[in-house]
């Protein structure tokens, strides 16, 4: 009984109350002692009849209690934190000082954040772009349709509305040019690979919903998208492996940093931004097309 109580309690706290295990255990037991209505059986009966309403109410109470406790604890913690906007906070230490004061000289990047994420802390960013890759592979694993007739793809194809078409015609060139600008200027101005990829991905999504899948498939076939992702990610991993290897073994990379502020400057940051931008574009578009029609 203790065990029953605990599992019940736990499942209730867990918020995903189920009767899976108990249900399955039951039929086997019924064969041995099916005459006496045990406490367990009465509990199950009660649970089946009144359970849903009871647990709905319990959910409500539990969520309010947990929410308030959590918020109170966190607020007390927040009250101990250093003051907002104060330049003497512990976060403004020698780390950010070096990023700001030496960043331009050491990475060649005018945009300090780009310099930080793609040079000083590049290992995080390497992982981050692979998180995106993981997600796109996972979505592909789930959403990819089995190969069937063609007519099903056409059924989900968006209606070619005249308003959407006209607006898309005007706006898509600007979006694409702006995306490319963000990608190529990531080391000079706000922007960088991730935001550029989001903008270009949006342009592709708009294109495919305005003009249909057939049009966009003239260039962006599944193979094309896979090859672009593959090339960018392999380039990224390879170049960063080289950079980590030389850094740890104290070998100079031999890559010129160039004149700060020029478009061809800041060493590896520009090619990395391009690679990241392409990966993000392809991932965003493939999310959309996998969700809407089950294939790229």
């Amino acid at each position: 009984m203790m065990n029953k109580f605990f599992t019940g309690l736990v499942k209730f706290v867990d918020g995903e109350f189920t009767i899976t295990t108990k249900r399955k255990a039951k039929p086997a037991r019924r064969h041995t002692d099916h005459h006496e209505p045990t406490f367990k059986e009465r509990f199950t009966q009660w649970h089946d009849e009144k359970g849903p309403a009871f647990f709905k109410a319990a959910y409500g109470i539990a969520s309010i209690v947990i929410c308030l406790t959590m918020i109170t604890i966190l607020l007390i913690t927040a009250s101990f934190l250093p003051e907002y906007g104060n330049p003497d906070n512990p976060v403004n230490n020698e780390v950010s000082e070096r990023y700001i004061e030496k960043g331009l000289e050491e990475t060649g990047s005018v945009n300090i954040v780009s310099g930080m994420i793609l040079d000083y802390r590049a290992f995080d960013t390497l992982g981050e772009s692979h998180v995106l890759f993981t997600a796109s592979a996972a979505v592909m694993l789930l959403m990819k349709k089995e190969k069937r007739g063609k007519e099903q793809t056409d059924r989900f194809s968006p209606k070619r509305d005249i308003i959407v078409k006209t607006v898309a015609q005007i706006i898509i060139p600007f979006l694409l040019v702006y995306g490319v600008y963000l990608m190529l200027n990531g080391h000079l101005s706000p922007g960088g690979g991730f935001s550029a990829g989001a903008v270009m991905g949006a342009a592709l999504i708009l294109f495919s919903s305005a003009f249909g899948y057939k049009k966009i498939k003239t260039v962006f076939t599944e193979k094309f998208i896979k090859i672009v992702t593959l090339a960018s990610l392999l380039f990224y991993a390879g170049i960063k492996c080289y950079s980590f290897y030389t850094g740890a073994n104290h070998i100079p990379t031999g890559i010129p940093l160039g004149q700060p502020g020029a478009i061809l400057s800041s060493g590896l940051i520009l090619p990395l931004n391009i690679a990241v931008g392409l990966v993000v574009t392809c991932t965003m578009y493939s999310f959309y097309s996998l969700f809407s029609k089950g294939e790229i």
């Binding site: 020698e94 990023y99 000083y120 980590f244 740890a248």
Partner: peptide, 8 residues
């Protein structure tokens, strides 16, 4: 991992 030592 790169050209810069620990806190950076």
């Amino acid at each position: 991992m790169g050209h810069f030592p620990a806190p950076w």
